[in-house]
């Protein structure tokens, strides 16, 4: 099975925008890959004039939020870096069982790369900041600039969402058959963020691929 890869347009975000932006993108992607019975839930972004759709699955929501928090803390520790969040969909297949092991193999069939460039100078609030960066004054004059920047980000985010839609539309053949398992809503997936060890992102990905994941659904 071929693995389709989608590189999403890079977004330049401020620290406090990361959460919303990532939620919006991740949920939108997963919604397109939730082929079980879903009751869509509309969510209006607070920072942008954008409404995105969630599957309405609480577990999924939690999972995504956790990853986002991890990512945010990573960003705080690694300022000035372009970062990438990867959402991968896979199928799990049992490997030939050996004597003592029951291994599953992940067959990745799709990967989404969300590229973020966190603007450091605008990093704000969040009591968490460990290495508080010098916060360049967001003075009065900066207000206009910020608004313009926000509008630009909104447009870019909009673009990214359409990029997702187009990709989903154009690439359908690689999507596995619909899971028939009761209660299974979405395909197994994982969200990968840069590791805290600062190791190369790709290496981290490889490590994770070697791990045995939890069979979320879809056997």
């Amino acid at each position: 099975m071929n693995c389709e890869v989608c590189q999403l347009k890079e977004l330049e975000v401020e620290h406090f925008e990361i959460r919303e932006v990532l939620r919006c993108i991740l949920h939108t992607i997963v919604f397109h890959r939730a082929l079980g019975l879903v009751r869509p839930k509309d969510v209006d972004l607070e920072l942008f004039e954008i409404t995105y759709v969630q599957c309405g699955d609480i577990e999924l929501e939690k999972k995504i939020d956790e990853k986002i928090e991890q990512f945010i803390s990573w960003v705080e520790k690694h300022p000035n870096k372009k970062s990438q969040v990867c959402l991968s969909f896979f199928e799990e297949k049992n490997k030939q069982a050996t004597w003592f092991t029951h291994k599953t193999e992940r067959l990745y069939w799709e990967q989404w790369y969300i590229n973020l460039n966190v603007a450091q100078h605008l990093k704000v609030h969040s009591g968490k900041s460990h290495n508080s960066k010098v916060v360049v004054d967001p003075g009065e004059s900066a207000l206009d600039e910020r608004m313009a920047r926000r509008a630009a980000l909104e447009a870019s985010l909009h673009e990214v969402l359409f990029q997702i839609i187009k990709f989903v539309n154009e690439k359908k053949d690689h999507v596995p058959p619909i899971p028939h398992t009761e209660g299974v809503v979405y395909f197994p997936h994982e969200i990968t963020i840069p590791s805290s060890s600062d190791s190369a992102f790709g290496m981290d990905m490889i490590k994770r691929m070697l791990h045995t994941g939890h069979p979320t659904m879809l056997s």
């Binding site: 397109h32 082929l35 509309d42 058959p177």
Partner: peptide
């Protein structure tokens, strides 16, 4: 049929998202 159904499903999800954008 299953392919048609799956693809229709994907299309409808896209539609659902697009309509809101």
């Amino acid at each position: 049929l299953s392919t048609l159904y799956k693809k229709s499903m994907l299309l409808l999800r896209s539609l659902y998202v697009t309509v809101r954008l």
